[in-house]
Simulated assay, not measured.
Amino acid sequence: MEKKIYSYDEAYEASLRYFQGDELAARVWVNKYAVKDSFGNIYEKSPEDMHWRIANEVARIEAKYPNPLSSEELFDLFDHFKYIVPQGSPMTGIGNNYQVASLSNCFVIGVDGEADSYGAIFKVDEEQVQLMKRRGGVGHDLSHIRPKGSPVKNSALTST
């Protein structure tokens, strides 16, 4: 079954109604959280569609356990962000069959051991790029940085 593709204007207008005239909320939702494919085609018209997508996916997993919640029960918890407010990456990634997306929002990265080398810097840089291309935010563990005045093996003799 082919999924309907919505224009930006269709999604924006439906989201504007959903958010009761809040233009910023409607634009942010369409730009950041509506499911899109790699070509920018929009497959959700409003946050209601997103909440059904998430509810259906969570219900699919719930069904594997005793006393599962139904899609309808889950939707009622998500609808209008009443009781459960998924964070950004989960809103985009859960049940998204069009793009690979992280379900986590933020990561703190660093290197175990010696971090003061070109290789370690490039390793952290590569890890950061991979996380960011999948919508992950990145924080850095800077605890390994030498304090000002520490001895270094270059012409400066101390770190700045």
Rank of each mutant, 00 (worst) to 15 (best):
F78L: 09
R60C: 08
F19H: 13
I61T: 09
H80C: 01
Y6E: 05
E72C: 00
P147F: 04
K4Y: 00
Q99T: 13
R53N: 03
N105G: 07
S143D: 12
D79R: 15
E114S: 11
K82V: 06
P86L: 10
S143T: 13
Y8E: 00
P47Y: 06
P147L: 15
S15P: 07
P66Q: 02
D125T: 14
F78E: 08
S70M: 09
D22M: 07
K64N: 15
V129E: 13
F81L: 10
K148Y: 08
S46Y: 05
A63E: 14
I121T: 11
A14P: 01
P86F: 08
H144I: 11
L16C: 05
A59N: 13
A101C: 07
G93H: 12
G119Y: 02
A120D: 01
N56V: 07
R27F: 00
R53A: 08
P47H: 11
N41G: 02
R53H: 10
A25P: 04
I109W: 14
S15I: 04
L131S: 03
L24R: 13
E114D: 11
G137V: 06
P66L: 10
R146M: 14
N31P: 01
I121G: 02
N31L: 04
H51L: 03
Y83N: 12
G139D: 02
K153I: 15
A26M: 05
G119Q: 00
V30K: 10
Y43C: 02
R17Y: 05
S102L: 15
E23Q: 06
S155Q: 15
H51F: 14
C106W: 06
S15A: 15
L142S: 04
Y12V: 01
Y98F: 09
I109S: 07
I121R: 06
H144A: 02
M1T: 04
S46L: 01
L16P: 04
F107S: 10
H140W: 08
K3S: 09
Q20Y: 06
G110F: 03
I145G: 01
V58H: 08
K4I: 00
H51T: 08
C106R: 05
D141S: 13
L74V: 10
V129R: 08
P86K: 03
P66H: 00
Y118D: 01
A25D: 06
A11H: 10
A25I: 04
N105W: 10
T92S: 15
H51S: 13
W29R: 03
L131P: 02
A120M: 00
L16N: 06
S70Y: 13
A26P: 14
L157T: 15
I84K: 05
V108P: 02
K32V: 11
R134H: 15
A115P: 07
Q130H: 12
Y65D: 08
S71A: 15
R60G: 12
K3H: 10
R60N: 12
G119D: 07
K36P: 01
G21M: 09
K32M: 09
P151T: 13
I5K: 12
V152A: 11
V108R: 06
K82I: 08
A59C: 05
A63N: 12
I61S: 02
G88Q: 11
A101F: 05
K64R: 05
G136R: 11
D49W: 09
I84E: 04
T158L: 05
H144K: 14
G149Y: 04
D79C: 13
S150K: 10
S104Q: 04
S159L: 04
K133C: 12
V28G: 03
V100H: 12
A115V: 02
W52M: 11
